[in-house]
Nucleic acid binder design. Structure first.
Lengths: 139, 139
DNA sequence: TACAATGTAACCTTATCAGTTACAACTCAA
DNA sequence: TTGAGTTGTAACTGATAAGGTTACATTGTA
């Protein structure tokens, strides 16, 4: 299952936008209902992905792109798939002396890559701005 | 990341088909390069999903459907998503006194459900028979 | 009846995640 | 310039899940 970091990250970005950056990690933690360090940890990933910027000692977070230019895929890539960007964990070390063991990996690669591509395609089509739009339309 | 159970399950089904069911868990384990109990554990899930049938004491596994009728989605559902069938873990317990916290969950539900649906759609379009076809076309 | 295979429970190790404490580094206002 | 307040991170603690392993009861068959 994809970790809750992903949905928390979208929550964080929405709050930054709505409060125009004048917000601290402790406030965000109060809205998410978790510890400020959890928030700062996720913000650190968003920062490394070039989505936000913040500075030690300074209250406030800057969005480096408008939310309409930040897709779910951008967020997903920022906080998930740490090393190899692969969704399906194909077992390695199959027995090369077995015909099936020798070829199973290459047989799985194409369809599973395609499935991941479709998932990412869909994630690319929603922006965080749409989330804020939905939230603002609620009472 | 989706666990390797999924790819191992496809490996198992391919072997059963190629050997026409005359095969034991120990042999499969040799091809996958793991412990027979790991294989039997996954076979148990495939059995509960109605894809295969085997009996204690009897060598051999029966496919309950032709591989051309077993999609990657069938296998995925058999061995992953144990309880709630949800791919994205949305954080619960957001602060209901915060406008964002109160509405983030409903804002995320629709796009994430759609993304999962697209992934599953793609998985539904590949069958395990295609994997066996690919393997048999190799040397 | 004895052998061989399956089905499962139980345990261990490892990895990841989320929560938490602690603290260094940094800003800015008084 | 000092002190309060904030961020950035390291480190530790469960909790949970996965894969590997041992052990053994159950079952069918030669």
């Amino acid at each position: 299952m994809i970790s809750s970091r992903f949905s928390v990250a979208i929550h964080i970005l929405s709050l930054i936008d709505i409060h125009e950056g004048k917000i601290k990690s402790e406030y965000i933690a109060g809205s998410v209902n978790t510890n400020p360090v959890v928030i700062r940890r996720i913000m650190s990933m968003l920062g490394k992905a070039g989505l936000i910027e913040s500075r030690a000692g300074v209250t406030g977070i800057k969005l480096l792109k408008p939310l309409s230019a930040i897709s779910f895929l951008d967020v997903y890539r920022a906080v998930e798939l740490p090393e190899n960007d692969v969704l399906f964990n194909i077992h390695r070390n199959s027995n090369p002396q077995c015909h099936v063991g020798r070829n199973i990996q290459s047989a799985l690669e194409q369809p599973l890559t395609e499935a991941q591509r479709q998932l990412e395609n869909t994630l690319a089509q929603t922006t965080v701005a749409q989330v804020v739009g939905h939230i603002q339309s609620q009472s």
